[in-house]
Design a protein around this nucleic acid. Sequence first.
RNA 1: GCCGCCAUCGUCUAGAGGCCUAGGACGCCACCCUUUCAAGGUGGAGAUCGCGGGUUCGAAUCCCGCUGGCGGUACCA
Length: 477
Amino acid sequence: MIRVRFAPSPTGYLHVGGARTALFNWLYAKKTGGVFILRIEDTDQERSTDAHTKVILEGLSWLGLPWDEGPVFQGEAVARHHADAERLLADGKAYRCFCSKEELEAQRKASPKGAEAFKYDRRCDRLPLREVEARLARGMPFVIRFRMPEEDISWDDAVHGTISFHGRDLDDLIILRADGTPIYNLAVVSDDIAMRITHVMRGDDHISNTPKQIALYRALGAPVPRFAHLPMILGPDGKKLSKRHGATAVGDYQGLGILPAAMRNFLALLGWSPGEDREILTEAELIALFSLEGIQKKPAVFDNTKLEWMNGQYLSRVAVEELVDPVARELDRLGVRYPSPAVLPPYINAVKARSRTLLDVARQVAIRLERGRAQLDEKGEALRQKLGDGYVRSLELAGETLSAIPEGDWKSERILAALKTTVDQQGMKLGDLLQPIRIALTGSTVSEPVNELLEVVGKAETLARLANARPPYGNGP
RNA sequence: GCCGCCAUCGUCUAGAGGCCUAGGACGCCACCCUUUCAAGGUGGAGAUCGCGGGUUCGAAUCCCGCUGGCGGUACCA
């Protein structure tokens, strides 16, 4: 039985890199009929917070990555971490180190090869037993260090192939702090053994931890799991994705109006490819096609534009009903008033195919719902300027034409017919009349067909906006 | 510095010796569709496959070297 885990530390929000790691683990578990476990690595008490844990859990839920076991908190297993360290000590595979942080710092500075190349010289490992006992009796604080084996360590990484390190390059790592709490590398190994994890899928940045952990597995007499090191996700500048690149937390994308399914699809394609030229994949397809072999070695740049394109694809395919609640939430956030969510579907239908995010949808729905004059966007303003007097004339013409339509006949076909008639009489092109109406009503050069727009907005409001859009706002004196 | 990882259009990628005068997608441009805008369709620009050596009849694909980028080098995770 394959058992995988996602093990974030609650020292920050759930970032897209972490989300991608979670997704791959989840996909692999689903694919193989295995178990996906969530473990919160909170051994760094200084930086871990419950608030972060909550955000991570919510992020995974939003993304649609339910875990089969957990969340288990690493902090609750310190007794076992401690016991494992003691066992290593008893087996002579680890030793007590009495060097304080300050002494270590001094040793580092005094290192002939420079602080950068410093490697602990094992001086405490050479302490006579009598001296160790004396220090213990005095209550001198100590950490437990793992004695790193000298031999080379290598493993067959599922994405990189064989990776090997020389044991002699590795330092004797501290596994238990002076206060008795475990250090990451011990805690991870101890937990992965206890949880019977078979496959460890995590970021590339852990490659250099892997030989240390393998040494720990061996010392603890446990089978070594299979490792798969996933490539990093980079910002547009080629540097590791971080806050300064803007939105990087999963919650940010939720706030931007990205659909979970689109996010999941996009993330799946960052560093993995199904091998054919497939892009839009359902959850079932993702699971069916997923494989460790398809994972990329090189890091990937996170492209917001493509994410938005993909979200647009999902938006135009998804049923309106599924959009009502999310759009209602966005409208509430924007402070837009509407009678009830039940009135929303026609508005959403009118704009969803033209939108890239839920926020776009909400904004456009808002324009159709709200009374008054629309704020022109950049393109709308540019067009109005270009049209000059023609803009005002068109709006007047439109106003006259439309006011002649009886309230009961206010249907898109009837509206179009009336508009066409006017255009023919005036010898204009239809676009000359429609585009001004569009920007007067929506402020934008992009909308559903104008006649449909008018039907949705309603006769009274249409006429009001047409009137509102005329001078004194014109560019004349 | 030392250790390790990586290297195909601007970006995401296909490619596991001949199918590659390198394919798809995003973005960009043009055209078509459309009463207008998106969406959609068609086409275009865009990669001397980081560089240099090998191996081979033949290399983006295998080997070596170089360069560049990234990661690690904590009583952080």
